[in-house]
Amino acid sequence: MEQVKGRGAQSGDLSVRFDLPAREPDGDWRDTREAIDGPAPKLRTEVTEETPRSILNFNQSPDIPFDRSINAYRGCEHGCIYCFARPTHAYLDLSPGLDFETKLFAKPNAADLLRATLAKRGYEPRPIAMGTNTDPYQPIESRYRITRQILEVCLDARHPVTITTKSDRVLADLDLIEELAKRNLIAVAISVTSLDPHLSRLIEPRAPSPAKRLAALGKLVEAGVPAHCSIAPVIPAITDDAMEGIVARVAELGVTSAGWIVLRLPHEVAPLFREWLDVHFPDRKDKVMGIVRSIRDGKDNDPSFFSRMKPTGVWADLFRARFDLAKKRAGLGRPVFELDSTRFRPPMTDGQMRLL
Rank of each mutant, 00 (worst) to 15 (best):
Val4Thr: 11
Lys5Leu: 15
Lys5Val: 10
Arg7Met: 09
Gly8Cys: 11
Ser11Tyr: 00
Asp13Gln: 12
Leu14His: 06
Leu14Phe: 08
Ser15Tyr: 10
Val16Cys: 01
Val16Met: 08
Asp19Cys: 06
Asp19Trp: 15
Ala22Met: 02
Glu24Trp: 01
Asp26Arg: 09
Asp28Leu: 05
Asp31Ser: 15
Thr32Leu: 09
Glu34Arg: 14
Ala35Lys: 14
Gly38Trp: 10
Gly38Lys: 07
Gly38Asp: 07
Pro41Tyr: 08
Lys42Cys: 02
Thr45Leu: 05
Thr45Glu: 09
Glu50Gly: 00
Ser54Leu: 00
Ser54His: 10
Leu56Ala: 00
Phe58Ser: 01
Asn59Leu: 14
Ser61Ile: 12
Pro62Asn: 11
Asp63Trp: 03
Asp63Phe: 05
Arg68Val: 03
Ala72Asp: 02
Ala72Gly: 08
Tyr73Lys: 14
Gly75Thr: 08
Cys76Lys: 11
Cys83Thr: 10
Phe84Ile: 08
Ala90Cys: 03
Leu92Ser: 02
Leu94Gly: 01
Ser95Met: 03
Gly97Thr: 07
Phe100Leu: 06
Thr102Trp: 00
Lys103Ile: 12
Ala110Val: 07
Asp112Ala: 10
Leu114Cys: 10
Lys120Asn: 08
Tyr123Asn: 03
Pro125Asp: 05
Pro125Leu: 04
Met130Val: 05
Met130Thr: 10
Gly131Pro: 14
Gly131Phe: 05
Thr132Tyr: 11
Asn133Ser: 14
Thr134Cys: 09
Ile140Asp: 02
Ile140Asn: 08
Tyr144Trp: 15
Arg148Leu: 02
Gln149Ala: 15
Gln149Arg: 15
Gln149Thr: 03
Ile150Glu: 00
Leu155Val: 01
Ala157Lys: 07
Pro160Gly: 08
Thr162Asp: 00
Thr165Gly: 03
Leu171Glu: 12
Leu174Cys: 08
Leu174Gly: 10
Leu176Cys: 12
Ile177Arg: 05
Glu178Trp: 08
Glu179Pro: 01
Glu179Trp: 08
Ala181Met: 01
Leu185Thr: 08
Ala187Cys: 05
Val188Tyr: 01
Ser191Lys: 09
Thr193His: 02
Ser194Glu: 06
Asp196Thr: 03
Pro197Lys: 03
Pro197His: 07
Ser200Cys: 01
Arg201Asp: 13
Arg201Asn: 04
Pro210Asp: 10
Ala215Val: 00
Ala216Trp: 07
Val221Asp: 06
Ala232Val: 12
Pro233Phe: 02
Val234Cys: 03
Val234Ala: 09
Thr239Met: 02
Thr239Ile: 00
Asp240Trp: 07
Asp240Ala: 01
Asp240Cys: 04
Ala242Trp: 13
Met243Ser: 00
Glu244Cys: 01
Ile246Cys: 01
Val247Gly: 04
Val247Phe: 04
Ala248Phe: 01
Leu253Tyr: 07
Ser257Arg: 05
Trp260Thr: 11
Trp260Gln: 12
Val262Lys: 00
Val262Leu: 15
Val262Gly: 14
Val262Trp: 01
Arg264Gly: 05
His267Asn: 09
Leu277Ala: 12
His280Pro: 04
Arg284Ser: 13
Lys287Val: 14
Val288Pro: 11
Gly290Asn: 13
Ser294Ala: 13
Arg296Glu: 10
Asp297Gln: 13
Lys299Cys: 06
Lys299Ala: 15
Phe306Met: 12
Val314Lys: 11
Arg320Trp: 11
Arg320Val: 11
Ala321Arg: 14
Ala326Phe: 04
Ala326Cys: 13
Gly331Asp: 03
Pro335Asp: 10
Pro335Thr: 06
Phe337Trp: 13
Pro346Gln: 04
Met348Gln: 12
Thr349Ile: 13
